[in-house]
Amino acid sequence: MQTGSRKERDFIRENFGEIWPVHVSAFTRLLTQFRARFDGDLDLLLVLAVIGERTRPENWNPQLVSLEDLATRAEDRRSQYAINIQSIADYSGIPRETVRRKVLVLQRKGWVHRSDGGKLSISADAAPDLAVATGDTIAYLQKIFCAFENARDTGNGAAAIE
């Protein structure tokens, strides 16, 4: 996976003073909103995020999927790779027993499905239940996008990402 070009990193470095304050403010607000939406439990959010990120198919094509498609699609676990509790613990650094307890909460909420073999995947019920949190994420991304646009428009390294 490519993490960005040198040109993009240089642009961020050159415009860090303009981008960073927007990020810190917006990210702090996003975490505060997530904390409220996840009953004060950011580890619950992290476990759900790891399941979502680590079960995404390798052939994921974001150009073909809109937010509405993701939020309203019929449940199709075949389009996800399954993950187990130990893999979540290994990836996140959260102790296995804590992950197990968080998964039980996510299952009770209907956001995670556990197969007979213990493999976990995101449930179709998660998207509508988390629509407000998704809106919070979109607001965060919009602020970051605007910070980059403003930095580009001010001319300080403007050509770096064009």
Rank of each mutant, 00 (worst) to 15 (best):
L30G: 03
R108I: 02
D153A: 06
D153E: 09
V105W: 02
Y140T: 02
Q80N: 08
A49R: 11
G110N: 11
R35F: 02
R6Y: 13
L106I: 01
R78A: 14
R54N: 12
K109E: 07
S79N: 10
E149M: 13
R152C: 01
P62N: 02
R37Y: 10
S5E: 13
P57Q: 04
L106K: 05
A160M: 13
R108W: 10
R35D: 04
E68G: 13
E68M: 11
E68S: 12
R9V: 03
Q33M: 11
V47I: 10
D43M: 06
D90P: 00
A82C: 09
R29I: 02
A71N: 08
D39A: 14
E14S: 05
V22Q: 06
R6P: 07
G17Y: 02
I161N: 00
G52R: 03
I19M: 04
L31S: 11
S121L: 03
S121Y: 00
A71S: 14
E18N: 14
Q80I: 04
V50P: 00
D43K: 05
H23R: 14
I12G: 01
A131S: 04
I161E: 01
S79K: 09
A89F: 01
R114I: 07
L141A: 10
A147E: 00
V103M: 01
M1I: 12
R78V: 13
G4L: 06
F34V: 07
L141E: 08
E149R: 13
N59F: 09
L45A: 12
I94C: 12
S115T: 08
D76V: 02
G17V: 08
I83Y: 02
R77S: 14
S123K: 11
Q33E: 15
I122N: 00
I88D: 09
V103H: 00
F16N: 15
A126R: 11
S115K: 03
P95N: 12
N15Q: 13
I144P: 00
R29F: 06
G135E: 11
E53L: 10
R101H: 06
T134D: 04
D125P: 07
G117V: 03
A147K: 01
E8Y: 09
G135D: 11
I122R: 01
L30Q: 03
E18S: 15
T98C: 09
D39E: 15
R37A: 04
L64V: 06
S5Q: 09
T55G: 03
L45C: 07
W20P: 00
A82W: 06
G52L: 07
G135L: 14
A49P: 12
K7G: 06
P95H: 08
A89P: 13
A71G: 09
Y81H: 15
P21E: 07
F16K: 07
S79V: 14
R96A: 15
V47M: 09
Q86S: 14
V103Y: 00
E53D: 13
T72P: 00
R13H: 08
G93T: 15
A126S: 12
L70W: 05
D129N: 12
V105Q: 14
L31M: 12
E8N: 14
A160V: 04
V24M: 09
G52H: 01
V112A: 01
R9T: 05
T3V: 13
L42Q: 13
R101M: 00
L45K: 05
K109H: 07
A89D: 07
